[in-house]
Design a protein around this nucleic acid. Structure first.
Lengths: 202, 202
DNA sequence: TAAAATTCTGATGGTGTCGCCAGAAAGCCG
DNA sequence: CGGCTTTCTGGCGACACCATCAGAATTTTA
C-alpha cells in the first residue's frame, strides 16, 4: 500500500492535491495556523478526507517533507556530482541550493515551517533533527573531497559544514520578511566567501 | 509603573522569579509546551499570579526576550568596542557571542524558542523579525568599520552580515541536539573562517 | 443493473489552552 | 486592633484543534 502503483488513481490525485494545498497553507499562514480544517478548505473537501487518505495530521506532514526533500535532492545532487573538482562542487552546492529556493519558493517555506515548528512527544528528540544531521554529513562529503585533493585547507569538516549550512538556512527567513530580497547577489557573495574560506592558503 | 523603582519589592521578586521559571520551561520543554500552567507549576504559584503581574502570556514572553537580550548585549557590546581594529572586533563579536551561549545556555535556548516559534496575528509580519534586522544591522557596523579602514575586502555588507549571523544562529540547534558539542572548537573555526573570508586579498 | 467497495460529508466528543473573576489570604498603616 | 490595599487561589467559560464515525454519495465490479 506504500508504492504509488498500488494506489488508485483517485487516491494518487487526492494525495497530490492535499499535499499541494498543505504546502500552500504552510507557506502562506505558517505552521501554527496550518490546521486540518484550513487545508481541507483550501482543497474544497471536508476534513475527513485528509484523515482518510493520510491517517492523520502527522502523516500528512511527513508526506509533505518527503515531497519537498525529493524536489530539492533531484535539483541539487546531479549538479554537484557533475563537477570536476571540489571547489566547483562547493560552488554548485551553494548555487543549486539557492536556486531551489528561487524556483520552489512555496515548498521551501513549507518545509522550513515544518522542520522548525514540528514537535514530537515531550522528552524525545526533535522529529527532524535527523534531517539536519544528514544535510551536514552530505555537505561534509564535498568538504572531505576538497581536503583529500588538496584544494581545501585543513579546517575541521563538521564545523565548516555547520557554518555553511547555517548561512544557507538563514536565507528562507530573509525571503519571508523581505519580498524584494536579492537572491542572486547573495548567491555570488556566498560562493566568494566560502571559496576564500576553504581554499588552501597561499 | 514601568521602571523597576516604581515597583513593590514583592512585585520585583515575583516578576524575576516568573521570568526565570519561564526560561526554565522554555529551555526544557520548548515553546509549544510552555503553558501558563506549566510555568506556574514550576514557580509553585497559581496561574492567576502570572496574569496579575504581567497581564498575559504575550507580555511575559516579551519580558523574557528583553531580559535575555539585555544579558547578551551586556556581555558582547563592551568587548567588541574595546578592540583596536575591525578584524579584532569581528573576532570579539564571534567569540563573545558563542561564549554567551556557553555561559547562559538556558536563557539562550529560551530566546531561540521564542524568536522562532512566536506568532502574531495572521497577516502581520513576524513579531521578532525586527530583532533579526537589528542584529544584522549591528554586525554590519563592524563590517563597515573594516572596509573603511581597508582591513576588509569589498564584499556586500548585508550579504556578509546575513552569512555570519546565519552561521552563529546555527549553533543553538547543535547545542540542543548534541549535548557534547564542542563550542570552543567551533569558535576557533568560525574566527578563522570569517577572518579569511573578509580580509583584503593579497 | 445490482451488489460491493471506495470515497466523502459534516457533526460530535475529547483535549488543551488562555483570560477572567469572586473571594480568600497576607501585608500595611493609622 | 481594624480597615484598606496588595497579592494570590482555584475554578469556570470560551475558544481552537484533531480524530472519529455513522451514514450518504460515488465508483467499481460482477
Amino acid at each position: 500500500m506504500v508504492s504509488p502503483e498500488s494506489r488508485t488513481f483517485i487516491e494518487q490525485a487526492r494525495r497530490a492535491q492535499i499535499i499541494e494545498c498543505a504546502i500552500d497553507v504552510l507557506a502562506e499562514h505558517g505552521y501554527a495556523r496550518t490546521t486540518m480544517a484550513r487545508i481541507a478548505e483550501q482543497a474544497r473537501i471536508s476534513t475527513g478526507v485528509i484523515s482518510y487518505h493520510f491517517g492523520g495530521k502527522r502523516q500528512l506532514i511527513e508526506a509533505v517533507v518527503a515531497e519537498v526533500a525529493k524536489l530539492a535532492t533531484d535539483m541539487m545532487v546531479p549538479r554537484i556530482l557533475a563537477q570536476p573538482n571540489a571547489t566547483e562542487a562547493l560552488r554548485a552546492y551553494l548555487e543549486s541550493n539557492l536556486e531551489f529556493m528561487r524556483v520552489h519558493r512555496k515548498p521551501l517555506l513549507a518545509l522550513v515551517e515544518i522542520v522548525t515548528h514540528a514537535t514530537g512527544d515531550d522528552g524525545d528528540p526533535h522529529p527532524y533533527a535527523r534531517q539536519a544531521e544528514v544535510a551536514i554529513s552530505d555537505l561534509r562529503k564535498v568538504l572531505d573531497w576538497g581536503q583529500r585533493s588538496g584544494e581545501f585547507r585543513d579546517f575541521d569538516q563538521r564545523s565548516m559544514a555547520i557554518t555553511i549550512r547555517g548561512a544557507i538556512d538563514a536565507v528562507p527567513g530573509m525571503l519571508l520578511n523581505d519580498p524584494g530580497f536579492d537572491l542572486d547577489l547573495l548567491t555570488r557573495e556566498l560562493v566568494t566567501t566560502f571559496t576564500l574560506a576553504t581554499r588552501r592558503q597561499p
